[in-house]
């Protein structure tokens, strides 16, 4: 039977807010909120991270023990540690980024976050910062613990920070590429596994790139982190300057590769986001 709503007492609506403008400060505020939310979400389940910290150290030492046929070859550890730090930064950072994104798309919170006046890339950058912090934590532990266990140190050289910074940008750009894939496909997990497996095999984490067959070393340089690790180890262990690695082509290739990866990541995200909005897959797969 019919029951009708009581007569409405319609009051004037609130003043309409239209004041949000994209400025560095407004973007930074939203980015900070995104990072804070991301960290709180990560810390809500610390056990996964703790297990990964343990795995990261055990895996490296075990791998070196096997490669050394039952001994830890101390002369190879500093170089491979540089590579493994890059690997863990890449592996765990991108894992956190991609897993969160897929979960949020399935859960619906990704769609909610898109109903903001801020453009979508601001949120992606926030997610990238959170994921990078998780990756960085694992990379630091995965590097420091083997150093403590073996007593091996990595010599400090400020010049090496330049190519290593490019390793970091490499990793961030590659993570962004995977995130862009995750915007449109939940199968990104397979892609993540494929690439990170290739990286640990070929970026110098098992043995320095110089020990690989030439053709394999060429292939390896197309993977993220390899060129950066090669340039960093040349500065740290071969006594080369930035000028040396520039003139021999390592640094220019690294710069070009990094730039290409950054541009590709930005383009892919823009394309996949646009397609997701067109096809109605922004809040679901």
């Amino acid at each position: 039977m019919t029951s009708t709503a009581s007569p409405a007492v319609v009051r004037p609506v609130q003043p309409v807010r239209t004041d949000w403008k994209l400025t560095p400060l407004s973007a930074l505020r939203i980015l900070r909120a995104e990072v804070r939310k991301g960290l709180l979400s990560q810390l809500a389940h610390p056990m996964g991270h703790i297990i990964m910290l343990v795995i990261s150290t055990v895996l490296y030492l075990g791998m070196q023990y096997v490669m050394g046929q039952g001994t830890l070859r101390r002369e190879l550890i500093p170089q491979t540690l540089v590579a493994i730090s890059g690997y863990w930064f890449l592996h765990y950072g991108s894992l956190v980024m991609v897993a969160d994104l897929v979960e949020e798309k399935r859960g619906g919170t990704y769609a909610q976050s898109q109903m903001s006046p801020a453009p979508p890339w601001v949120f992606m950058l926030g997610r990238l910062v959170t994921a990078s912090l998780a990756g960085l934590a694992v990379a630091v532990v995965a590097t420091l613990v083997p150093m403590l266990v073996t007593g091996v140190t990595i010599p400090l050289n400020a010049a090496a920070l330049v190519p290593y910074a490019l390793v970091v940008v490499n990793v961030l750009a590659f993570t962004f590429v995977l995130a862009a894939v995750a915007v449109s496909s939940p199968m990104v997990g397979a892609l993540h596994s494929l690439f990170t497996s290739l990286v640990i095999l070929l970026n110098g984490s098992m043995m320095p790139l110089a020990l690989y067959p030439d053709w394999l070393a060429v292939v390896a340089r197309f993977l993220p982190t390899t060129l950066g690790v090669e340039a960093t180890t040349k500065v740290l262990f071969d006594g080369k300057s930035l000028g040396d690695i520039w003139s021999e082509g390592t640094l220019p290739w690294l710069l070009a590769y990094t730039l290409a990866l950054v541009l590709f990541g930005g383009w892919l995200f823009s394309r996949n986001h646009r397609r997701a909005v067109r096809d109605g897959r922004l809040g679901q797969y």
Partner: peptide, 22 residues
């Protein structure tokens, strides 16, 4: 878009809408 996004809030169907871990 920016101005339009400030005009509404939404609860979507079949969706968590909020973070359950928070």
């Amino acid at each position: 878009r920016a101005a339009a996004m400030q005009q509404f809030g939404a609860v979507l169907e079949g969706s968590r809408n909020v973070y359950w871990t928070l």
